[in-house]
C-alpha cells in the first residue's frame, strides 16, 4: 500500500504554514507525526492533494511551565511528553495515558497535536484533554482562538477546526493539590487501539471527592465525559456501592460501535468495568482507600 499521488510542502515557520493552509484549504492536510495519517492515506481514507509538513517548524515543539498551566506545542512528540518531569509532576494523567499509546517507535514520531486533530474515537489524548479540561489554541491567517476541549471533538475524525486552521498549542491546567488520577484501557494486544479506555481525574478533600472528571475513549463516535458517573462519585464517594452505581451509570450512558474487534455490548460492559478500575486506582493513589 502506497500513499496516493500528492505533493508535500515544507514550511519552516508557523506563519508560512498558516499561509499555505489558507491558500490550499480543503485540498491540503497538515502532516504532523504521520503515525495515523500515513495509514489513512495508504487505505485511501484520506486523499489530500497536498500535505503541509509541520516537522520543520521547530518552535511548535515545546513543553513550558506557564504558572497555573503547562503549555505544550502541538508538534511535541509523544515520547517527549512521556519523558517530561514537568508533565509527570503536574499532569500525571497525561503522562500515564501517553505510555499507553501504541509502541515506542510510534511515540517517537507521533505528536499530541496530530492525535487531537485526527480525533480517532479510540485514541487516548481526546479523553485526557476532556478530563483535564484543557484548552486548545488554534491559529489561522485570520487570527487565534481558544477552543475548550469539550467543544473540540464533533464526530469520528472530525473536530471544530476550520480547513484553514491549525492546532498550535495545548493548555493543560496543572492538577490541583489533593488530586489524583488514573488512565486505564483495554486492548486485545499491548499497543493496539484500545477497545475502550477511561481517564479519571479526581480531587479529594478530607478523603471525600470534591471534583470528579471521568472521560471515556473507544465507546462512541468521540471521546466524552461521563457526567452521570461523575455525579454519583462526587455525591456518594469511592466506596464499593458508589463505584458499582457509577459503573452502571457509565455503561448505560455510552453508545459504542460494533466492529471486528469487539461488539457494542462488550464495549459498554468494558466501560463500566474500567470506571470501577480507574476510580479505585485514583483513590488508592490518593491514599483514600487501600
Amino acid at each position: 500500500m502506497k500513499p496516493p499521488l500528492l505533493d508535500i510542502l515544507t514550511p519552516s515557520s508557523l506563519a508560512e504554514a498558516l499561509s499555505l493552509l489558507s491558500e490550499h484549504g480543503d485540498e491540503a492536510r497538515p502532516l504532523a507525526g504521520g503515525q495515523s495519517l500515513v495509514p489513512l492515506l495508504n487505505f485511501r481514507m484520506s486523499r489530500p492533494a497536498i500535505l503541509i509538513d509541520l516537522n520543520q517548524i521547530a518552535d511548535l515543539a515545546y513543553i513550558k511551565d506557564a504558572g497555573d498551566y503547562i503549555a505544550i506545542g502541538a508538534m511535541t512528540r509523544e515520547r517527549s511528553i512521556e519523558d517530561s518531569d514537568l508533565v509527570r509532576k503536574e499532569a500525571p494523567l497525561l503522562q500515564e495515558a501517553t505510555t499507553q499509546i501504541a509502541h515506542l517507535p510510534i511515540r517517537n514520531r507521533g505528536t499530541i497535536g496530530g492525535s487531537l486533530a485526527n480525533a480517532d474515537p479510540a485514541a487516548e489524548y481526546p479523553a485526557v484533554v476532556l478530563a483535564l479540561e484543557c484548552e486548545l489554541v488554534v491559529q489561522s491567517v485570520r487570527g487565534e482562538r481558544r477552543i475548550k476541549a469539550a467543544a473540540f471533538f464533533e464526530d469520528v475524525l472530525t473536530t471544530a477546526l476550520e480547513p484553514d486552521e491549525l492546532l498550535t498549542e495545548i493548555i493543560v491546567p496543572k492538577a490541583p493539590s489533593g488530586s489524583s488520577s488514573a488512565f486505564v484501557e483495554i486492548a486485545r494486544r499491548h499497543g493496539d487501539f484500545a477497545l475502550a479506555g477511561i481517564a479519571a481525574q479526581i480531587t479529594f478533600a478530607n478523603s471525600a471527592p470534591t471534583d470528579v472528571r471521568l472521560a471515556v475513549c473507544g465507546a462512541g463516535t468521540t471521546a466524552s465525559r461521563l457526567t452521570a458517573a461523575e455525579e454519583i462519585i462526587q455525591r456518594d464517594g469511592v466506596g464499593p456501592e458508589a463505584i458499582k452505581a457509577a459503573s452502571e451509570a457509565a455503561a448505560s450512558a455510552v453508545d459504542p460501535m460494533s466492529d471486528l474487534h469487539a461488539s457494542a455490548d462488550y464495549r459498554r460492559r468494558l466501560t463500566g468495568v474500567m470506571i470501577g478500575q480507574a476510580v479505585e486506582k485514583a483513590a488508592q493513589r490518593a491514599g483514600v482507600i487501600s
Binding site: 500513499p3 508535500i8 504521520g34 500535505l51 515506542l104 510510534i106 517517537n108 514520531r109
Partner: peptide, 13 residues
Amino acid sequence: DVAVRSCLMFAVQ
C-alpha cells in the same frame, strides 16, 4: 537517534 517506522515517513522528510 530514535527508532521509527520507515513506512510511516516520507522520503523527503
